[in-house]
Design a protein around this nucleic acid. Structure first.
Length: 586
RNA sequence: GGGGGUGUAGUUCAGUUGGUUAGAACGCUGCCCUGUCACGGCAGAGGUCGCGAGUUCGAGCCUCGUCGCUCCCGCCA
């Protein structure tokens, strides 16, 4: 190959026996038997065993060179006396005749060999070592393959990648911006894009038709296990002269292929993925990101509790509270403690309790004793109950979300999740507006730039809370993978939409002038979507922590412990920017 | 901003109702070992028990405060 190596450490096989080779890499492990020293030499491609003999004058040197030092060796490939079937290069080893130490390693703060369950703080501080470890190294490699495949799939479907600005304007909606001071414009700030949203729409106005970008996005919000602090990447896409279904078709092809290609044995839903209207998702799954690996669904049981005999829930229903039911197939013989545990959970969460009915061994348990025979028949019919089944009831205000949590807990407790599947769906028909709980005001529920279903007519004639948006999320196994919308490209509708939310013309022009102005000069109908790349990789790898699929993530306080960012800057730098630091006392 | 968890050797952890010199494994140092592959064996170094105060004859352990980390809620598509 070159003067450093003729082969990589993952390459040599029995066919190479007899040839003289040069390898270079890190000392992964050493096994010193006194007169014989085995060295596992590791590089990006794999591990090859090298043997040093005590008769060689290299023996002392290798003995004294610490693990994770970088060395180069030369020697003859020989057959092993004892083959190691667990490694691809396990048939051979190198009988070393020359050794070069390129870089000696100090005593390590974290071991590269092994599981690596040190605190994340330490792993991030020594991320360069952490990244040498097989698991993280492979995670990053898969991420790269996923991105390469995404590019290929998008290009194949007629999309072109464009770069949009990183230094841009602060947008008043959504998350907090990261700000960058401008030296040339004292007192003014750029913002890092929360997403290339406005630029990709402007690209449509400019006639580029099909855009995509592996786009960095920046949001100054607190992280979570599945939410990377500070920055993350999206497969951002937008297309002109299309409906929602056209976007779905492209994304189903792209994401469907990605999941199938990298699913690692798990099953993947075939396109088209099922569409679930938002309201149905909230009722049936208690979430706008339903985990369809869980077969349990939630029913509305409010009507059932009308003079049912069970006065607690009859009262709740009468008082305008909602009652939800979850049918549990074949759970009728669960012990009372099983149901009591959920009852206690509901009480804990402020929902009063959870009642149940269980049919088992010809008897019926739970609150069934309050029902007469007719009501019991109605129960069986309405909720499709059979002998051996159970059903659990809960009620209260804002019950949907709670029912969703219970659905997940029940699914876990009954071990119903199909752990070997990627279940993909679209949640569609998000409401355009929602009511502010405290003030009662009408507000945009998500993106104000999406197209209301029914257009201007709907805005003029429908009750705002009845209006739906052409807005959609792609959901996989309970994770919101992507969201997108058919955009509102008509200024007239935009002004009206904002008016309903309490913004007059001048405010809209002032805040969103850039985009609205462009729409006045011929804007095509357009729509788009943006799947999160970090989350996709996380799902594919079954990694619970998003930071483990990112090379150099910030920690929970948005700090880079290795590079020491953020950090203070010099007086001169601040002066040049006309910035004074005014920290709170304490 | 709020709630939960956690902090003991370089690392992962154990540490009994408060009781003598705080332990183990991995790592590190030295010695022995020619077929190992998580090599093995012997010996050794390594600790202000996060920090501060308090209770006590006596605190790693109890109390209060404080700091760090982490997970969740808020926030965030």
């Amino acid at each position: 190959m070159n003067e450093y190596r003729t082969h990589t450490c993952g390459e040599l096989r029995a066919d190479n026996i007899g040839s003289t080779v040069k390898l270079a890499g890190w000392i992964h492990r050493k096994r010193n038997l006194g007169n014989l020293c085995f060295v596992d030499l590791r590089d990006h491609y794999g591990i090859t065993q090298c043997v040093f003999d005590s008769s060689s004058d290299l023996f002392d040197t290798i003995q004294n060179t610490r693990v994770e030092s970088v060395i180069g060796i030369e020697g003859v490939v020989v057959a092993r006396e004892s083959v190691n079937k667990n490694m691809p290069t396990g048939d051979v080893e190198i009988k070393v005749s020359a050794l070069t130490i390129y870089s000696e390693a100090d005593v390590l703060p974290i071991q590269v060999f092994g599981e690596g369950n040190e605190p994340e703080e330490l792993r991030l501080k020594y991320r360069f070592l952490d990244l040498r470890r097989e698991r993280i190294h492979n995670n990053i490699m898969l991420r790269s393959k996923v991105i390469a495949e995404m590019r290929k799939l998008m290009v194949e479907q007629g999309f072109t990648e464009y770069q949009t600005p990183i230094l841009t304007a602060s947008s008043p909606e959504g998350a907090r911006d990261f700000l960058v001071p401008s030296r040339i414009n004292p007192g003014k700030f750029y913002a890092l894009p929360q997403a290339p949203q406005q630029f990709k729409q402007l690209l449509m106005v400019s006639g580029f038709d099909r855009y995509f970008q592996i786009a960095p996005c920046f949001r100054d919000e607190d992280p979570r296990a599945d939410r990377s602090p500070g920055e993350f990447y999206q497969l951002d896409m937008e297309m002109s002269f299309v409906t929602q279904e056209d976007v779905f078709a492209v994304m189903e092809k792209t994401m469907g292929t990605i999941f199938k290609k990298f699913a690692n044995g798990k099953t993947v839903d075939e396109a088209p993925f099922i569409r679930i209207p938002f309201r149905e998702a909230m009722l049936k799954y208690g979430s706008d990101k339903p985990d369809l690996r869980n077969p349990l669904t939630i029913d509305d049981a409010t009507d059932f509790f009308n003079n049912s005999g069970f006065s607690v829930y009859d009262e709740k229903a009468k008082n305008g509270e909602q009652i939800r039911a979850i049918r549990l197939p074949n759970a009728g013989n669960k012990p009372r403690s099983f149901f009591d545990k959920f009852d206690a959970f509901a009480k804990e969460e402020g929902f009063g309790g959870m009642a149940y009915v269980a049919f088992a061994d010809g008897t019926v348990k739970g609150i069934a004793k309050f029902f007469n025979e007719e009501k019991l028949r109605e129960l069986k019919n309405k909720f499709a109950m059979d002998e051996g089944d159970a059903i659990i009831f809960m009620g209260g205000k804002k019950i949907n979300k709670f029912a969703g949590i219970v659905r997940n807990k029940l699914g876990e407790a009954l071990d119903l999740f199909d752990k070997n599947a990627f279940k993909l769906c679209w949640v569609v028909d998000f409401p355009f507006y929602e009511e502010n709980e405290e003030t009662g005001a009408i507000e945009f529920s998500h993106n104000p730039f999406s197209m209301p279903q029914g257009g201007l007519e709907a805005l003029n004639n429908k009750h705002p809370l009845e209006i739906l948006a052409y807005q959609y999320d792609m959901v996989c196994n309970g994770v919101e993978l992507a969201s997108g919308a058919v955009r509102n490209h008509l200024p007239e509708i935009m002004y009206k939409a904002f008016e309903i939310a309490g913004y007059d013309h001048s405010i809209v022009d002032n805040k969103f002038g850039g985009m609205i102005n462009a729409f006045k000069y011929g804007a095509p109908p357009h729509a788009g979507c943006a799947p999160g790349i970090d989350r996709t990789v996380m799902l594919l790898l079954d990694e619970p922590i998003i930071r483990d699929v990112i090379l150099f993530p910030l920690n929970g306080k948005a700090q880079d412990l290795m590079m020491q960012a953020p950090n203070t800057v010099t007086e001169e730098q601040l002066k040049e920017l006309h910035i004074a630091i005014d920290l709170p006392k304490e």
